[in-house]
Design a protein around this nucleic acid. Sequence first.
DNA 1: CGGTAATCTAGAACAAGTTTCAGAGTTGAT
DNA 2: ATCAACTCTGAAACTTGTTCTAGATTACCG
Lengths: 226, 226
Amino acid sequence: MDQVIRATAAKANKVANVTKVTRADIGTRPEAPALTERQEARRRRILHASARLASRGGFDAVQMREVAETSQVALGTLYRYFPSKIHLLVATMQDQLEHMHGTLRKKPPAGDTAAERVAQTLMRAFRALQREPHLADAMVRALTFADRSVSPEVDQVSRQTTAIILDAMDLQDPTPQQLSAVRVIEHTWHSALITWLSGRASIAQVKIDIETVCRLIDLTEPGVQE
Amino acid sequence: MDQVIRATAAKANKVANVTKVTRADIGTRPEAPALTERQEARRRRILHASARLASRGGFDAVQMREVAETSQVALGTLYRYFPSKIHLLVATMQDQLEHMHGTLRKKPPAGDTAAERVAQTLMRAFRALQREPHLADAMVRALTFADRSVSPEVDQVSRQTTAIILDAMDLQDPTPQQLSAVRVIEHTWHSALITWLSGRASIAQVKIDIETVCRLIDLTEPGVQE
DNA sequence: CGGTAATCTAGAACAAGTTTCAGAGTTGAT
DNA sequence: ATCAACTCTGAAACTTGTTCTAGATTACCG
């Protein structure tokens, strides 16, 4: 539960004795340290195992030893690819989000206002999550539990989410106010998911919350106010 | 990290063999199983130790063995009062929230619109959290990481937060729409705190987010629309 | 091809949350 | 005051995330 602090400490160590540059975070997307084919395959196996275990029993069912075993990789190797369980699950989320974004792109939401389209898109995503509630649990919990050492990866997830919402709004260049609204929508989205996952809010309630927050967009949409 | 599942399982067991009713959750407020004076004192010591350790190093610094030692209580006893680290930290949050609510009540926010008053109140709370960022970290992380087994306690925290916001709005009987807005504000509040705590958003950014979401209130305030 | 640095494996070891247990201490009702 | 039930203590044990180590394997450079 507190292993994160140790992960952070370790990372600090690595930075400290820079004798041999150990490349951190093989698992992260953007920089892509050019993986071997076999490495890419390993990475894929790991993410696949992670998602499968998560689908079964959520956050707690993703046990590092089991992920390693399932993906036929030594425990140490797993940790080289993903420096902590949280990193692993956040990476899993990135992976799933990409799928999701692709899927959503195919059927753009039909709605007159940007608010409607965004609400519709989020509800579509929500229904997808409902099909794999355990997986959703694992990913969302990891995301909100992540500490500073996972910031880059979490940020990446956040950017991806923003992209999905902006896509739904179908805007060329959003105003700062609209970007603020998008931020708030993301906040609401995450937090509402959590309350649903922990059984404190119904699906209907989440729907209402999403629709409510999406009205914020209307507030900014008319645009011509200068 | 996954101990929560075991805690849940254990609780299930307790429910299962109901030969001797083991009273669960001494730590929870509302039901108040009538604690002895000494028990009340223990509970207080534990919460105090928890808060103190959290203030030092955040979530990870609150180690159950150390909390037990500091509060002069056996480990088993600590677990009898608070069935998991998460329970303990959520209870700590309840405790702090009570303080906070009391403090806020003394100086009601000055503002013309409900939106302003709420934003002002939340920023005041935010500044209080900034004074003890580690404590804030511990409490918020526990809150969002909590699973179903902690739902009642988390719900209690949520109700308390709602009360604070409604207080700031200064309404007699809010409409369903206003309640929705309050829910969304709470979502934003929590999620914004997380992004700040994990270093992904600045204080200024949090302020903007809060002010943005508070505009939702204006949307519903005029009220006379039937 | 040969050598060297990086990577991978198996497995032990460590840390902290959680559980368990036997015995000592309290409490409450009679 | 006394007995039964409950609670507390101290310590060991167990689980799972994380780290470490020594010895294979692999990738790559010449």
